[in-house]
Design a protein around this nucleic acid. Sequence first.
DNA 1: GATCGAATGTCAGGTTGTTGACATAGACGA
DNA 2: TCGTCTATGTCAACAACCTGACATTCGATC
Lengths: 152, 152
Amino acid sequence: MSSSKATPPHPAADVTEHVGYRLKRAHSALRGALDAALREHGMSVPQYSCLEVLALRPGLSNAELARATFVTRQSMNLVLRGLQEAGLATRPDVVDHGRARPVRLTDAGERRLRSAQESVYAVEARMVAGVPAGRLAALLEDLDAIVDALDG
Amino acid sequence: MSSSKATPPHPAADVTEHVGYRLKRAHSALRGALDAALREHGMSVPQYSCLEVLALRPGLSNAELARATFVTRQSMNLVLRGLQEAGLATRPDVVDHGRARPVRLTDAGERRLRSAQESVYAVEARMVAGVPAGRLAALLEDLDAIVDALDG
DNA sequence: GATCGAATGTCAGGTTGTTGACATAGACGA
DNA sequence: TCGTCTATGTCAACAACCTGACATTCGATC
């Protein structure tokens, strides 16, 4: 035997038993399913995420949207330009007070979001159906606990 | 109220309560922690993943490595070139039988992997410590169930 | 009022990762 | 033997996302 001698964080035959690996795999599967579901609506996952957050909290700035969707300001800026070009979101060119420009969905943006939500929620439903009924709440809790443990 | 009228897959005040959102957030936190941990070793997450799989299953081809790490053949090919340039992995230029070229770690590659594993396993340990002791096995199961439900 | 710090928007460059396309190698059935 | 099918490696173009850097704006402090 030649490698894998550093002590693993919990008993496991190999890396594929680790939480990180499983998390990555689940995320990859979700991402793939969402990509496929959104393709019919001519939308990408980042764009959809942005629209969804924007519907929930209208008037958020670029930087705030970036934090809400776990990407950098620079990445979100690109997404927003795409959404603006597509006429799905608007940002005022100038603001009277600060530097942040509040982003809002257009009517077209809301319509596109609603139609995409049907497909996305279908994916979510498939995903939820996979986990035993009584364990969903615990799963959500544990995912949060992981976040807290990692960057809290 | 103007949007978010498509029926969600399970009772939730908003998208931030959905499994998909939590999964994305947890993955993002993990990715960030791993990036930071691996930076000290001058290695990226994809490179580390490749090395780890390679240690476990020497001789895998580019396409097989890609599937094991959930990326495309094209992406893995780039990673492998980087590893080869760095002298961490080797691929024969020609093979007698098929088309697939088996990839193997060099001694330097194994050393680099082992040193990186210490940092990565520390991150994994932090993550595992966050979830209640008795629930780790269930968490792993549920993540697998999600994968099965999504692409099975 | 002047200064410092924090947050924001944005530019530049690079890495990672994707889809699409193509040629090649082997397996299998007609 | 000849297609056909599948898997592989690779090229090209593009999208997503990152780090690093810079100027602008506001609020807090002196």
